[in-house]
Design a protein around this nucleic acid. Sequence first.
DNA 1: AGGTTAGATAACCGAGTGGTTAGGTAGCGA
DNA 2: TCGCTACCTAACCACTCGGTTATCTAACCT
Lengths: 116, 116
Amino acid sequence: MATDPLSVIFAALADPTRRAILARLAEGPATVKELSAPFAMSGPAISKHLRVLERAGLITRGRDAQWRPCHLSAAPLKEVADWAEHYRRFWDASYARLDSYLQQMKDEESDDGHDR
Amino acid sequence: MATDPLSVIFAALADPTRRAILARLAEGPATVKELSAPFAMSGPAISKHLRVLERAGLITRGRDAQWRPCHLSAAPLKEVADWAEHYRRFWDASYARLDSYLQQMKDEESDDGHDR
DNA sequence: AGGTTAGATAACCGAGTGGTTAGGTAGCGA
DNA sequence: TCGCTACCTAACCACTCGGTTATCTAACCT
């Protein structure tokens, strides 16, 4: 797998179990046991998912006696949102109109009588 | 790999080559040859990347004689942006203040003298 | 000290990824 | 028709992923 930050983040999000874990953590910190409760999955499987999320910077883990409370760390999600925003003009109708207007300006400019 | 739409989209985006292809297509349609030019990679490798993008709904391919022009299809990126927006309050300071205010209201409500 | 619980690690497995080379197909143009 | 170009498919490779079971550590509670 690619190791650049954005690729690691996207890869971490490309699994419904991990996205569900993030959704749960959006409601507050939770232990590993609590996080694994909704899933028909062994502990180690959850543990691996958590490590993937941790390496993507999406969660942090503390320590409280025998518990390892996880909590959400949303900074990478801002990166995702910012990245996607670059393409907004391709799905947002009003943006698309602005974009085609600017494109038209550009076309007319490069078209008005000068060679090369 | 997970087969739900959002997972397929995120997985497609979890590769810098594929994101670079999308960035190129944001400037307009391109043939497979044009898309492969910036990369030190064989044709079939690019072809596989394009198939991943196509299955995620991020590109469509037409046909023009021996060329297969690709163009961007950004609807899935809107899904990504919308998904990430759900977490905005965790990185946006003003949203976070609103959120803690609402949380405080909730705490005071469940705290004002009633048992259970 | 002994038992229980929370959690991580290791080793393994089947399926998928990202790349390769080789070879096939479709359309253009001389 | 012959050759060139654009592109795809097939087969293969090393590696990763998502899951398992078995085993280990650490902390709590009698």
